[in-house]
Deep mutational scan, measured.
Amino acid sequence: AQASVVANQLIPINTRLTLVMMRSEVVTPVGIPAEDIPALVSMQVNRAVPLGTTLMPDMVKGYA
């Protein structure tokens, strides 16, 4: 199954992502693919992302 990017902590709005904030997990619905984690580093989220939330393309500025 495809692993997705999941928030490893609460990520406040406009925060630049770092590796420690993200983990890969097989979840439904599928979000951003886990292999994109390196590309997500330093991108900003456009909303607060609670712990355990799957990151979707529309949550990350410049990803989609």
Score class of each variant (00 low, 15 high):
residue 1 A to H: 06
residue 1 A to C: 06
residue 1 A to Y: 11
residue 2 Q to D: 15
residue 2 Q to M: 06
residue 2 Q to H: 07
residue 2 Q to P: 15
residue 2 Q to S: 10
residue 3 A to V: 07
residue 3 A to L: 13
residue 3 A to Y: 13
residue 3 A to T: 07
residue 3 A to K: 06
residue 3 A to F: 14
residue 3 A to I: 09
residue 4 S to N: 02
residue 4 S to I: 01
residue 4 S to F: 03
residue 4 S to A: 03
residue 4 S to L: 02
residue 4 S to G: 04
residue 5 V to A: 07
residue 5 V to E: 01
residue 7 A to C: 03
residue 7 A to L: 03
residue 8 N to G: 13
residue 8 N to W: 06
residue 9 Q to P: 02
residue 9 Q to W: 13
residue 9 Q to C: 05
residue 10 L to S: 11
residue 10 L to F: 14
residue 10 L to H: 09
residue 10 L to R: 08
residue 11 I to P: 00
residue 11 I to E: 01
residue 11 I to S: 00
residue 11 I to L: 11
residue 12 P to T: 06
residue 12 P to G: 07
residue 13 I to S: 10
residue 13 I to M: 15
residue 14 N to H: 14
residue 14 N to I: 03
residue 15 T to Q: 09
residue 16 R to Y: 14
residue 16 R to N: 07
residue 16 R to G: 11
residue 17 L to A: 00
residue 17 L to M: 10
residue 17 L to I: 13
residue 19 L to G: 04
residue 19 L to V: 05
residue 19 L to R: 09
residue 19 L to E: 04
residue 19 L to F: 07
residue 20 V to A: 14
residue 20 V to T: 13
residue 20 V to F: 15
residue 20 V to W: 15
residue 21 M to A: 04
residue 21 M to F: 06
residue 21 M to L: 06
residue 21 M to G: 03
residue 22 M to C: 03
residue 22 M to S: 00
residue 22 M to T: 01
residue 22 M to F: 07
residue 23 R to Y: 04
residue 23 R to G: 05
residue 24 S to D: 05
residue 24 S to L: 04
residue 25 E to H: 13
residue 25 E to P: 01
residue 25 E to W: 07
residue 26 V to I: 12
residue 26 V to C: 05
residue 26 V to P: 12
residue 26 V to K: 05
residue 26 V to D: 10
residue 27 V to Q: 04
residue 27 V to E: 01
residue 27 V to F: 02
residue 28 T to E: 13
residue 28 T to L: 08
residue 28 T to K: 05
residue 28 T to N: 10
residue 28 T to G: 05
residue 28 T to Q: 11
residue 28 T to M: 10
residue 29 P to F: 04
residue 29 P to D: 05
residue 30 V to F: 14
residue 30 V to G: 08
residue 30 V to E: 11
residue 30 V to A: 12
residue 30 V to P: 12
residue 30 V to N: 10
residue 31 G to A: 03
residue 31 G to W: 02
residue 31 G to F: 02
residue 32 I to D: 01
residue 32 I to H: 00
residue 32 I to A: 01
residue 33 P to Y: 11
residue 33 P to A: 07
residue 33 P to H: 09
residue 33 P to N: 08
residue 33 P to G: 06
residue 34 A to S: 14
residue 35 E to V: 13
residue 35 E to A: 11
residue 35 E to H: 09
residue 35 E to N: 10
residue 36 D to G: 11
residue 36 D to F: 10
residue 36 D to N: 14
residue 36 D to W: 09
residue 37 I to G: 08
residue 38 P to M: 14
residue 38 P to G: 13
residue 38 P to T: 10
residue 39 A to M: 15
residue 39 A to V: 08
residue 40 L to F: 02
residue 40 L to P: 00
residue 41 V to K: 05
residue 41 V to W: 11
residue 41 V to H: 05
residue 42 S to Q: 08
residue 42 S to N: 15
residue 42 S to V: 04
residue 43 M to V: 05
residue 43 M to S: 07
residue 44 Q to P: 06
residue 44 Q to R: 13
residue 44 Q to S: 15
residue 45 V to I: 07
residue 45 V to L: 08
residue 45 V to G: 02
residue 46 N to M: 15
residue 46 N to D: 10
residue 46 N to W: 11
residue 47 R to A: 13
residue 47 R to T: 13
residue 47 R to Q: 10
residue 48 A to Y: 11
residue 48 A to K: 10
residue 48 A to L: 09
residue 49 V to Y: 01
residue 49 V to E: 01
residue 49 V to P: 01
residue 50 P to N: 12
residue 50 P to R: 11
residue 50 P to S: 10
residue 50 P to W: 06
residue 50 P to V: 12
residue 51 L to H: 13
residue 51 L to M: 15
residue 51 L to T: 11
residue 51 L to I: 12
residue 51 L to N: 14
residue 52 G to D: 11
residue 53 T to L: 10
residue 53 T to W: 15
residue 54 T to M: 03
residue 54 T to Q: 03
residue 54 T to F: 03
residue 54 T to K: 04
residue 54 T to G: 02
residue 54 T to Y: 02
residue 54 T to I: 09
residue 55 L to P: 01
residue 55 L to T: 01
residue 56 M to K: 08
residue 56 M to V: 08
residue 57 P to Q: 09
residue 57 P to T: 06
residue 57 P to N: 05
residue 57 P to I: 05
residue 58 D to I: 09
residue 58 D to L: 14
residue 58 D to N: 10
residue 58 D to A: 13
residue 59 M to E: 03
residue 59 M to C: 04
residue 60 V to E: 01
residue 60 V to D: 00
residue 60 V to R: 02
residue 61 K to Y: 08
residue 61 K to F: 11
residue 61 K to T: 13
residue 62 G to V: 06
residue 62 G to T: 05
residue 63 Y to R: 03
residue 63 Y to V: 03
residue 64 A to T: 15
residue 64 A to L: 11
residue 64 A to E: 10
residue 64 A to P: 08
